[in-house]
Structure formats: structure tokens, C-alpha cells
Design a binder for these strands. Sequence first.
DNA 1: CGAATAGTTCGACAATAATCGAACCATTAT
DNA 2: ATAATGGTTCGATTATTGTCGAACTATTCG
Lengths: 109, 109
Amino acid sequence: MKQYEHPPAEAFLLTTILHALSDPYRLSIVQKLAVLQPQPCAPLQGNRPKSSVSHHFNVLRKAGLVRTVVEGVLHMNSLRNAELESRFPGLLDTILAAAAHSAECQGAE
Amino acid sequence: MKQYEHPPAEAFLLTTILHALSDPYRLSIVQKLAVLQPQPCAPLQGNRPKSSVSHHFNVLRKAGLVRTVVEGVLHMNSLRNAELESRFPGLLDTILAAAAHSAECQGAE
DNA sequence: CGAATAGTTCGACAATAATCGAACCATTAT
DNA sequence: ATAATGGTTCGATTATTGTCGAACTATTCG
């Protein structure tokens, strides 16, 4: 059962995080994870081919936003809330609050 | 004395703002403007050719982060603090605080 | 075992974005 | 008028990203 690599919190880069969240689809994934956690990739897929979904989860993982744990067949994703909070206090919450004000992720199924 | 176009606050898009700030050089410009405002482009140039600097200021303007006002020969830049705050409360401050924790813009001169 | 499910990896292609020189424009100073 | 300063625009080049099909891997179920 091979697992993923995740950067340690000390290695998080603000610009990488901002870049990861600057894509509407990735932002929508993070929004949905914020509501229900953990979740496998499938319900967050929304029409895209699996290879694209996989790519975007990779970007989120490398930025440190998402942790993925393999449990049987499912790859369960969660936000790295606590680590993000300790490294960049308030950042994720503020961005999620801003995203909630903003209609831009509606179509990002 | 031709001026610039700036999007109204209602048109700000979160993903566009995050993208604009995901570049280390642009983030460093915003950090410096946060300290001293307004400023012309020249002192924020840092080795880059003028055409690149102009490009990055454009990205910042289109995202709604920066307002540029022509005053004589100088193009004076300020952050659109109040408008950003009203549209996405806390966003800019939180990102600037995070940037201060992060050593990534040192080399972005 | 064989088939189904969930996701990854690879490689190609398309779209976006960054970089930079050269020519240009506007304002001020000489 | 001419020149200097501060910045833009254009166009070409390169680099980074996103998209997607096809083949593959791992786990579970019948």
C-alpha cells in the first residue's frame, strides 16, 4: 500500500500555495474538502478526465494544501489545516471566506 | 495626461488576485507598497528590464491590487487597500503577514 | 482467477504566462 | 527645440501549465 509524499510544513512556500489556489477547479476542491473531510478524488472529479484530476491533486499536495492517504482502493484527501494554520496563520480560512463571497467556482464542477 | 483603467471592486476575482500574488516579484512589489505608498515603478524595478516591470504592474492592476495614477512624469502606484478589504475582508493583510513569515521574496529584488 | 473500481503515469499537444530588446510616448528641464 | 527621465507597447522567444487519451497499478469483489 504505497503512500504519497507530502512536504513538511517548514517547506511550504507562500507563492506555491497561492498559485495552487489560483486555479478555479483546485480552489473548488479545497472548498469542498473544507466542508467534508476526508474525501476520495472521485466525488470531486466533475466531468474532468481522471488524468487531469490526478494532476490537480498533485499540485495541491506539492503545495502542502492536501494530504492524501491510501485506504484500500480509495485515496482519501484532507486539508492540512493545522499545519497550514501554524505556518501561515489565518491564510486558508481567509481565502476560503473570500471564495465563499465570490461566485467564480460555480462552474468549476 | 492619459490615465489607466482599473477594474471596479465588484469585478475582482479571487483566483486572479491569487494568481497575481503567486509570483515572487509581484508579491515583493505589493509588500513594498504596503510599507510605503504611493511609489513610482522605478524604485521597485530591481534589475529587471523596464518592459518586464511594466508587464508585472499590468498584472497587478488588472487583478485590482494596484492603482496607478499618472502624476507628471511619474506613475504613482498604491495598493487598493480599502476596496480589497471591502470585497475580500482580511485577504491582503493575511497574505502580507504570511509573506513576512516567508523568506521567499528576498531574492526577488 | 477474472473483472470492476479508483487513481496514477506517460507523452503529446494546446494554452498561458514570463522575459526582454527595440522603438515609442509623455512630461519636464535646459 | 532638444535632451533626459519614466514608463508603455510591440513582437518574438521561451518556459510553465493545463488537458487529455491510453496504458498501467493496486485493491476489492464475485
